Amino acid sequence: MPLLRQGSHYLAFGILQLVLDWSLFVAFTTFGMAAAPANLASRTASAVLGFWLNGRYTFADSQGSRLGWRRFVRFWALWIVMTVLSTVLVASVEAHLGLRWAWLAKPVVEVGLAAANFFLLRRLVYR
């Protein structure tokens, strides 16, 4: 059952990425960085880890990992779209409700995007 195996790996690695992303976001904003650039920086750091983990383990097949430049380019194209959505949502919360609410909203936004991202990664990036 590749979908079950992939889903469980994606969930485990996603939690690790979420913790890294959220921790960096909180740290960057605590030290005065605005929410939008902090979101961009924290997502970039967690995306590098996620590309490698998902290509090496989650979506690997009997022939090995699913990394490489073509996949890397497709990954970053998808990442840009998801990052724009994430940044707009998190920055909007910060602008309207304040930084502490943005800290709370960030994991909710990322989990919501991750659900769609799994199927997009599976179909478009690591195929």
Rank of each mutant, 00 (worst) to 15 (best):
N39P: 06
I15F: 12
R127N: 12
G32D: 10
R5M: 03
G7K: 06
R5K: 14
R71G: 11
L18P: 07
L18M: 08
F28T: 03
M33F: 13
L16M: 01
S62V: 03
L11Q: 00
A38Q: 04
A34F: 03
A95D: 07
L99G: 01
L85P: 06
S23K: 04
L20W: 11
L89Q: 11
S92R: 02
H96I: 09
Y10N: 00
F28C: 09
Y57F: 02
W69T: 15
W79H: 08
Q6N: 02
V109M: 08
A114N: 13
R70I: 07
A27W: 08
V73R: 05
T83S: 15
Q6C: 00
S92C: 01
T29L: 09
F75R: 01
A45G: 15
H96T: 14
I15E: 01
L24Y: 11
A60S: 11
F59D: 06
R66P: 10
V84A: 13
F51C: 03
L3S: 13
L113D: 01
I15Y: 00
T30R: 13
L104P: 05
L4M: 11
G50K: 07
Y10T: 00
F118D: 11
A41C: 14
E94M: 08
G32K: 06
L67S: 07
D21Y: 10
N54Q: 11
V109D: 09
R66M: 10
M33W: 13
R74C: 07
F25Q: 03
G32N: 09
A12M: 09
F59R: 09
T87H: 11
L40K: 13
V90M: 08
V109K: 06
G32R: 08
F119E: 02
L85N: 10
V19P: 15
A45I: 10
R43T: 14
T29R: 13
S23Y: 03
S8L: 15
L78T: 15
S23P: 03
A77Y: 04
S86C: 12
A38V: 01
L67G: 07
R5C: 03
E110G: 04
V88E: 13
T87E: 11
M33A: 13
V26H: 06
T30C: 08
